[in-house]
Design a binder for these strands. Structure first.
Length: 635
RNA sequence: GGCGGUGUAGCUCAGUUGGUCAGAGCAUACGGCUCAUAUCCGUAGUGUCCGUGGUUCAAAUCCACGCACCGCUACCA
């Protein structure tokens, strides 16, 4: 079996600059790519940017430039970031690339020709606000459930992909291939979703509504919409259909994604491939989120951690190490600078960095400037390093096959720990006092240096720069040639190599929580939304409203129907049923947004939204400290 | 509300198919060493393994119910 490996990241949507989430996925992919390259696999590592769609067109218009200029700009931010993170992607694909566009059209044509794309004539209910159609079933009293407005009876036609036709096949396939989607929790999620009948996938937008996309080859009045465009990058990046790369790499494809795009990758993509007559990808590997300061990383919240800031502050390899060590693959992790520093100091500075430092220093001091020869081996005493090293190499290999990168690091750190013990137990500094035990001392030094070689190689995919420094210190001239295969057997380090003491690999970080006395009762600051103008604010019409009547909405969980007086009577519905009883509400004067677009909740029309915030006992309503005039404007 | 997940030492988490499974790392205390980045090594712990029932000779590990938190979804204006 030929040793081949193909790893992809999602292509990142260019409506925002890169953040830690992007960095994490891409660095994981990089570690995997480096690892398999080191094992001698022919490896292809693909990342890129997703550049079509409404949001891009709008953002470009807002910036006063063309969509192409806009996407060029943001895409470059991603492309330029990766080298700074030592990411070694083999190709960077953009969905605006000519060959991508051409291939997407070819696949669309093929699927269309075989009858899996049909033209759906909609005699539909279209809500302008939502920019979408509703089925009769979805409408509430004939109105849009979101906007509460009567939809237009509009004839729009679109193209649909017969995804439903492949539902049974997909269920069967996932069941037959237990690790198709992993970890298992995400496989279960997909299977749960597939228990419901699958809808066909709308894959077009009329050009009257969207032009920034790829033209449908069989109808120039339409462009293709999102996923049919984006997902195909994984094969256009391999020059599908005729590329050598496609033939070589597709059969072993590994996709890496965050859990938010599970559905498109777990459901749309396999069915699309099936329809196109292409075999499914090998594995979908799903990881969790990095939570920052309790709240989720989110573009809209603006709490974006800039990876470059961290790398510049603490060093790239430390940054990579932290991301890879602290996240259990598949689960969410929380990011904090404190945890980062903790990890860096104890694992990198104290354990690994100090081990390298003390070993090389002793080697130079006691043995000369060269790697000594191990001439006095005591199997009883020295076997521990050799055995542990061999076991560690094997364990790391297992961990990689399961994508348990944090476990691989744990295993490597066990070896480091045992090496530190080995030093203390052998007491080289005492042997050095007795010239008659020189051979024994040199053997111990050799064992240490050889272990460092193995550790250095093991750590290379994770921390390429630091690993190289380690290997150079122990005299290896061409670290790139130290592959994983060279550490399977003990003794690969040639005696006689010239040693060089280096700077501290990982200087200790002094870090004090710059935060002032942390009030433990005080919750962390919720990220503040982007600035708005006074005009923006003025659009919101707030009024003092007196509650006349209140009653729970039948069968609802927490909805409360309120009749209020703001100079006129109207009804609003609010989700406060868990926090307030109806009788306690009547008579209160509260603040209501009165010009919010009406909506319907549980069949009850709501013409406004009350204001509330959190308290120890749940929600608390915004009210006044004197009796306010009913209907008074709040400003 | 529905579906799914999680709940193990102060913190972060391991714990395959039920029987040395009550653990690791960090943090804490004490001791040792001095080659080393005030680093390293050793020792000491603490835990109703969320709660309550049940199955079993035996459960953190299986079942039921409950509680808490998370995810998706729904009625989040």
């Amino acid at each position: 079996m030929e040793k081949v490996y193909y790893i992809t990241t999602p292509i990142y949507y260019v409506n925002a600059s890169p953040h830690i989430g992007h960095a994490y996925t891409t660095i994981v992919a990089d570690v995997l790519a480096r690892y398999y390259r080191s094992l001698g696999y022919r490896t292809f590592f693909l990342t890129g940017t997703d550049e079509h769609g409404d949001k891009i067109a709008e953002a470009a218009a807002k910036a006063g430039i063309t969509p192409q200029e806009f996407t060029d700009r943001i895409s470059a931010q991603f492309r330029d970031l990766w080298p700074e993170l030592s990411v070694t992607n083999d190709y960077f694909i953009r969905t605006t690339d000519k060959n991508h566009v051409r291939t997407v059209q070819a696949i669309l044509q093929k699927v269309y020709d075989q009858g899996d794309i049909y033209f759906g004539h909609y005699e539909g209910y279209y809500c302008v606000g939502c920019e979408r159609f509703y089925t009769e079933k979805e409408l509430v009293d004939g109105k849009c459930p979101d906007h509460q407005t009567p939809p237009l009876h509009r004839k729009e036609s679109n193209y649909f992909f017969k995804m439903s036709a492949y539902q049974d096949w997909l269920i069967q396939y996932i069941q037959d291939h237990p690790d198709f989607i992993r970890p298992e929790r995400y496989r279960n999620e997909v299977l749960a979703f597939l228990r419901e009948p699958l809808e066909d996938l709308c894959i077009s937008r009329p050009k009257s509504r969207l032009t920034w996309g790829i033209d449908l080859p069989f109808d120039e009045n339409y462009v293709t919409y999102v996923w049919f465009d984006a997902l195909i990058n994984y094969i256009t990046g391999l020059d599908y259909p005729d590329g050598e790369n496609f033939r070589t790499f597709w059969p072993v494809s590994q996709h890496l994604i965050a859990k938010d795009i599970l559905k498109p990758h777990g459901i749309y993509w396999p069915t699309m491939l099936k329809a196109a007559g292409i075999e499914p990808y090998r594995n979908l590997n799903v990881h969790g989120y990095w939570n920052v300061d309790q709240s989720k990383m989110s573009k809209s919240l603006g709490n974006v951690v800039k990876p470059l800031d961290l790398k510049d502050k603490y060093g790239l390899d430390t940054f990579r190490y932290f991301l890879l060590r602290d996240m259990v693959f598949g689960l969410d992790s929380s990011f904090s600078e404190e945890a980062f520093v903790q990890r860096a100091n104890s694992d990198l500075a104290n354990d690994l960095g100090n081990l390298v430092s003390r070993s090389v220093t002793m080697a130079v001091k006691y043995g000369g400037e060269k790697v000594p020869a191990p001439t006095d081996i005591l199997p009883e005493e020295d076997g521990i390093l050799q055995e542990t090293a061999a076991r560690t190499v094997a364990e790391v290999e297992t961990c990689f096959s399961e994508l348990a990168l944090h476990k691989a690091l744990i295993a490597i750190w066990e070896l480091i720990s045992i090496t530190n013990k080995y030093i203390v137990e052998r007491e080289p500094w005492n042997l050095a006092k007795d010239p008659g035990r020189k051979a024994r001392l040199e053997t111990i030094i050799y064992n240490l240096l050889e272990t460092l070689r193995i550790v250095g190689v093991l750590v290379t995919p994770f921390m390429p720069g630091s690993a190289e420094k380690i290997l150079r210190q122990i005299g290896i001239v061409d670290p790139a040639r130290q592959t994983l295969d060279t550490i399977r057997t003990w003794g690969g380090l040639a005696p006689g190599l010239a040693l060089t003491r280096g700077e501290s690999l990982f200087p200790r970080i002094t870090y004090s929580k710059e935060e002032q006395p942390v009030d433990t009762n005080k919750p962390p600051l919720t990220p503040i939304k982007p600035e708005i103008s006074y005009e923006d604010f003025e659009k919101v019409d707030l009024r003092a409203a007196k509650i006349l009547e209140a009653e729970p909405v039948p069968k609802s969980n927490k909805l409360m129907k309120l009749k209020i007086d703001i100079g006129e009577e109207r009804t609003i519905v609010a989700g406060i049923g868990k926090d307030y009883k109806a009788e306690d509400l009547v008579g209160k004067t509260i603040v209501v947004v009165v010009n919010l677009k009406p909506t319907k909740l549980m069949g009850v029309e709501s013409r406004g939204m009350l204001l509330a915030t959190d308290s120890e006992e749940g929600l608390t309503l915004v009210s006044f400290d004197r009796s306010a005039l009913t209907g008074g404007k709040v400003r």
